[in-house]
Each structure stands twice: as C-alpha cells, then as structure tokens.
Deep mutational scan, measured.
Amino acid sequence: GSLMYASIFGNVSAIIQRLYSGTARYHTQMLRVREFIRFHQIPNPLRQRLEEYFQHAWSYTNGIDMNAVLKGFPECLQADICLHLNRSLLQHCKPFRGATKGCLRALAMKFKTTHAPPGDTLVHAGDLLTALYFISRGSIEILRGDVVVAILGKNDIFGEPLNLYARPGKSNGDVRALTYCDLHKIHRDDLLEVLDMYPEFSDHFWSSLEITFNLRDTNMIPGSPGSTELEGGFSRQRKRKLSFRRRTDKDTEQPGEVSALGPGRAGAGPSSRGRPGGPWGESPSSGPSSPESSEDEGPGRSSSPLRLVPFSSPRPPGEPPGGEPLMEDCEKSSDTCNPLSGAFSGVSNIFSFWGDSRGRQYQELPRCPAPTPSLLNIPLSSPGRRPRGDVESRLDALQRQLNRLETRLSADMATVLQLLQRQMTLVPPAYSAVTTPGPGPTSTSPLLPVSPLPTLTLDSLSQVSQFMACEELPPGAPELPQEGPTRRLSLPGQLGALTSQPLHRHGSDPGS
C-alpha cells in the first residue's frame, strides 16, 4: 500500500510541476520586462504597450523563439521550412505564380514574418522605404497627419515599386495596425538579389506586381527641396563636378596662354591676372594647382613670374625650331616645348642647366612650328573623362623618358669634360720664339709635331656638333674642335714665318 501511495504521489506532483513550468517561465520573463521598464524609466503609455505586446506574443508563440529554433537546422532544411511557412503567400499572390521551385525557395529564405499588435506603428512618415510588405492577416491604416487616407487588409501590398527607383524613397505617411496583424516583408536588397539570379522571372514579377498603396513621397523628385535634403551631399558634389568641367572646357578654348597655377587659371584673360583667384576666387580649394602655386600668395601677385606667355621676339635665322618633346602628345598638341628640351639645344645650356634650372624654367623657349593648343594648358582630366590607368601609364612613360634624357646628358657632359682635359694635357705650358741651342744640326726643328685630335665617332658628340652648327654659343662658352686643319689655341699665330727665318745662335768662333 505504501508503494502504491508513493507512486501516485510522485506522478501527481510531476504533472503539477509540468503544468506550472510554463507559468514560471512566463513570470520570469515578465519580471525581466518590468525590470527593464523600471531601469530605463519608460513612461506609462509606452510601458503599457510593452506589457501588452509581451503578453500577446507569449500567448501567440508560447514563449518560443522561432528564429532561434529555425537557425538550429541546416540551410537546406531551413529553405523547406521557410517554404512551408510562406506557402499561403507564395501560392495566392499573383506576382509569385509561375516561378520555379528554386526561385520560390530563394524568396522564402528572404521573407521575414512580423507580428504587430493593435496601435503599433510599422512605418513612420519620413522613414526610408527599405522593404516591401505583404499583409497575411489583420488590417492596417495609413495616416497623413491625423487623416486616415487608406485601410488595407489581407493580401494587400504596400511599399514602393523598387524597379522604378535606384534609391529608396521616404514614406509619405504613417502605417498603423488596427488589429493583430501578420506581415511578410522582404528587404529591398534581398528581393533585387533574387531577381538578379532569376532574370526570366524578374520581368514577370515586375509586370504582375500591383502595389495597393504606394508609400513613396511624390514630392521626392529631382530638383525638389525634399530631394535635395535626401541627396544633399551627392547633389552638391555633382554640381561641383559639372562646374569644374564647364570651366576646364572654357580653358581649352584659349591656347595662347600657358599658366603654371593649374587648370583653373589657364583660361583667365590678361585683365584677371591681378585678381586673387581668377574664376576660382569664390572657392580657392575647388581646383588643383601645381607646386608653384604656393608662391602666388606673396605680395606682387600681378607681377609674379609664374604666369607664362609666349615671347614675341624673333628667332635667329640659324636657330632650330626646338628640341624633341618629352611626351608623344607634344608633337601634336603643344605650341611651347618643355623646359628640359631647351637644355639640349647647345653645349652652353648643358654647362648651365643644373646651376640655374629654376631660373631657366621661365626663360624664352623655342617654339614648335605648329600653332596647336598648349601642352601645359590642357586641363586636368576628371576620373569620369580619362581612366586612372591611362594617366598612370603616361606618367610612367614620361618618367622613363626623363631617365633616358638624364643618362644621355650625363654621358655627353662626361665626354666633353674628358676631351677638354685631354686638350689641356697635350698642350705645353708655354712657348717662346727663341729656342735653346741643340747639340747638333738636327735641332733646327722649332717644335715637335703635334698629332691632331682623333675624329669623334660617338653619337652623342655628333649631336653636340649638330647643335653647335645651329645654335649661337654665348661669349663665355668653350669652343669644341671642328672639322678641318686643327691648330692649338695656345700656339702663336705666325708659326709659318718662324720656319722661314734663320735661327740666331749665340757662340764663340775658336779662330777669332
């Protein structure tokens, strides 16, 4: 009898404990919600809404976190579960008819179910419309201010047509639940991603989709105040780019002037030289400038040598048109050559190039014969006009050509200096018209024969001689050997007369 009593008592207590286990969990969670309300000092109306929603959600799901349970299964099984949970929507909604099984599984994985109690606001006026909503159960109302403009029910759709707008718009009203509602919502990016994977279904979906109420604000059109608020930074940046392009296009129409201050000032006329910023005076940081632009901040801005204009002085008759350009485009679109090309026009420029290279940067340069637009006047290309890779490749080509020119210049200078040193070592320090008596009659020769300089066969020296023939050397430049009979510069000019005159010897006659 005691054994029977113990078994009955144990079973009854276990049954009672299981009955009250759900209630215990409910009270535990309710205590957490109330502690949250007390800690954050939530006001009474919002506090009442929180408690009511918790009670309804507990009775609806029995305190089970559906998302946590669903995430515990593998992905393939999750797709089947989501397809079952959203079967009513996918079967009865017209846009989803005719979709393949794979497309429906992908869509079912992207849908999220939302449960809303009465009085809950789903979308506020001015919120971004980031999702498309399908009503599965219940009814909602749409308000503009305090005026109800629409009441939607089961199988209705609200949001915005995503295929017509590249960016999400703003809501033009509040969406509030009238009863307990079940909503299926899919985010904008998720829907577009699935439709991109199934393009054959995309056309059918957009053609058959009928949005019951379009929440997009109709005033959000390009150029409206609301649109400016939504895309303020983007609009200002776009206007700045367009104004920069218009100014650079105007600059290219004036090829007669070359400016070292950047493309923003290349198009300024002579009357605007004294102004601080020219056409860019209202925004000094709008356009890029070269490193020399920092010198323009000092006094005497109108007389600054940074602004270059072609000189009108005539060229000498024998002067060549100019050196070879550094870039391939210089032959086609440049009416002034790079300062480095002028360094190779003569030997005198070679000796004085490194010492006063900055001073020569603004000297007169030889002109190319074609009066085409200036290379320095070409505006900086924006990322939309020329690819970045093209600019980098041009810079690399320019750097390689500069290296080759520097190597060639160093070799030419070394060769010229070597020839000058050899000339100085071969010439005796001094010569006299009267020579010392020699031991015999073989001493009648006034000077030792001097062998002429070897013929220069280097390509670089031939180019130097060509430049010497075309360029007029300055007075202080050293002379180079030329073709024809060679003669030492330090010898007297009348050596031929010395050989014809008898030598005057000093000596005593033994017979006297």
Rank of each mutant, 00 (worst) to 15 (best):
L395K: 04
E253W: 10
E324R: 07
P325M: 12
V194C: 08
G223R: 11
L376V: 11
G232K: 09
D249Y: 08
P325S: 13
Q466F: 03
A430G: 09
V464G: 10
Q401V: 13
E331P: 09
E331W: 06
N349I: 02
K239F: 11
N338Q: 12
S341C: 10
D127F: 01
I378S: 14
P310M: 12
P222L: 08
P263H: 13
R385L: 14
E257L: 10
G159D: 01
A497C: 09
R301Y: 05
T436R: 12
R367K: 12
D251T: 10
G226K: 10
G322L: 14
S410K: 12
P316D: 14
L261T: 10
D396R: 06
L143H: 08
G511M: 13
E253G: 08
L143T: 13
Q494D: 14
E200W: 01
R188C: 08
R273W: 04
H184I: 09
S352G: 09
L192F: 12
Q418E: 08
R245M: 14
R238H: 11
M327R: 14
L420N: 02
A477I: 12
E253S: 11
L473C: 11
T407V: 12
S208K: 15
G262S: 13
C181F: 01
G438C: 09
T252N: 14
W206R: 06
A166P: 11
K185N: 08
L215N: 01
G511T: 07
I211S: 02
A497S: 12
L380T: 09
F158G: 03
V416H: 11
L456T: 13
I350G: 09
Y198F: 09
I140N: 01
S352A: 08
G322N: 13
A131N: 10
L129G: 02
G476R: 13
G438V: 12
E406K: 05
L143I: 11
P325H: 04
S374W: 05
D335R: 08
S139P: 01
S304P: 08
P199I: 01
P485Y: 15
T248L: 12
T499H: 10
K185W: 14
T212F: 01
A430F: 09
G126Y: 01
P161Q: 06
R400M: 10
P502I: 11
P310C: 14
Q466K: 11
M424L: 10
Y198P: 01
R358M: 12
T212K: 03
Q361Y: 13
Q363F: 13
P449I: 05
P314K: 04
V148I: 12
A469Q: 08
L380Y: 06
T415M: 05
A433T: 08
S235M: 12
L340D: 05
Y198I: 01
F213L: 05
R246S: 11
F244H: 07
L503P: 05
P316Y: 05
R505C: 13
A414I: 05
A411D: 12
V347Q: 13
Q363V: 07
D156L: 02
A268N: 12
T457H: 07
E141H: 04
S285I: 07
A469L: 08
K332N: 12
I186M: 03
M327Y: 10
P439C: 15
S352Q: 11
E257N: 12
G233M: 10
R505A: 13
N403L: 11
S208M: 12
Q401R: 03
D296G: 08
T435L: 09
P321A: 11
N172P: 02
A266Q: 10
F467P: 06
L456Q: 09
I211T: 02
L395Q: 05
Q237K: 11
T444W: 06
P441W: 08
G232T: 11
R388G: 13
R236D: 11
T407M: 04
G267M: 10
K250Q: 10
L261R: 09
Y198N: 04
P428C: 09
S341D: 13
F244A: 10
T218V: 14
H187G: 09
N172H: 12
T130I: 08
R408E: 03
P284H: 11
S345W: 08
F201L: 06
L132F: 04
G223T: 15
S451G: 12
S374K: 07
P475R: 13
F311Q: 09
S393K: 01
P454F: 04
Q399R: 13
V434F: 09
L326E: 07
S465K: 08
L398T: 03
G298H: 06
G169R: 01
L498W: 06
E479C: 09
S208V: 10
L178Y: 06
P478N: 10
H187D: 11
L398E: 03
S460C: 09
L420Q: 01
L461Y: 05
S410N: 15
S227D: 14
P168K: 10
Y165L: 04
A477K: 12
P222M: 10
G476D: 08
V427F: 01
L230P: 13
K332C: 07
P428F: 13
E257Q: 09
L402G: 04
G359P: 15
S303E: 10
Q418Y: 04
E406F: 01
T457I: 10
M197A: 06
P270V: 13
P291I: 13
G298K: 15
D412N: 07
P199H: 05
M468N: 07
P475G: 10
P383C: 04
V148M: 09
D251L: 12
L178D: 01
T415V: 09
G264M: 12
L419K: 13
E331Q: 15
E295D: 05
M468V: 07
F213G: 03
K332W: 13
P284K: 04
F244T: 14
R245T: 09
T218W: 08
S462H: 14
P199D: 06
G287S: 14
V194M: 03
L417D: 03
A166N: 04
D356T: 11
P478E: 10
Q494H: 06
S289V: 06
A260H: 10
L375N: 06
E141S: 13
G267S: 10
N172A: 11
F344K: 10
Y180W: 05
F205P: 01
G256D: 07
H504E: 06
Q399D: 13
T425A: 09
D459F: 01
L453T: 07
Y133Q: 03
L380C: 09
D396L: 07
G355H: 07
K241D: 13
L458F: 12
G223D: 12
G359Q: 07
N349S: 06
I350V: 09
R240F: 07
A477R: 09
E324A: 11
K239D: 14
E324T: 15
S352C: 04
S290I: 15
S136T: 13
Q361F: 12
L242Q: 15
R386G: 07
L162T: 12
P441Q: 12
S286V: 08
G287K: 12
R144N: 15
P161T: 04
D196V: 07
S410F: 13
T212L: 02
G138F: 03
G359W: 15
V148Q: 07
L230I: 14
D190R: 02
G507A: 09
M413I: 13
L209N: 03
S357F: 15
L461W: 01
V149T: 04
Y180Q: 06
R137N: 13
P428Y: 06
L192Q: 04
S304C: 07
I142S: 03
N155S: 09
P379E: 09
D174A: 07
S445G: 12
F353S: 11
S286L: 01
P299M: 01
C368S: 07
S259H: 10
S171E: 01
L215R: 02
G346V: 11
M197S: 09
L498V: 08
I221P: 10
L453V: 11
P310G: 05
A260G: 11
S283D: 15
M413A: 04
R273Y: 07
G223I: 13
N377H: 14
R216T: 09
F205K: 01
S451K: 11
P369N: 09
E331L: 12
T336D: 07
R301E: 08
G269T: 11
S139K: 13
L405T: 11
L152H: 01
S289M: 15
A166E: 11
L152I: 05
F344H: 11
E193S: 06
E295F: 07
S500Q: 08
L417T: 05
G233N: 15
F158R: 01
A343T: 13
I221R: 10
A469K: 04
S313L: 09
K241F: 07
S348C: 06
Q237N: 10
R273E: 11
G256R: 08
M424K: 09
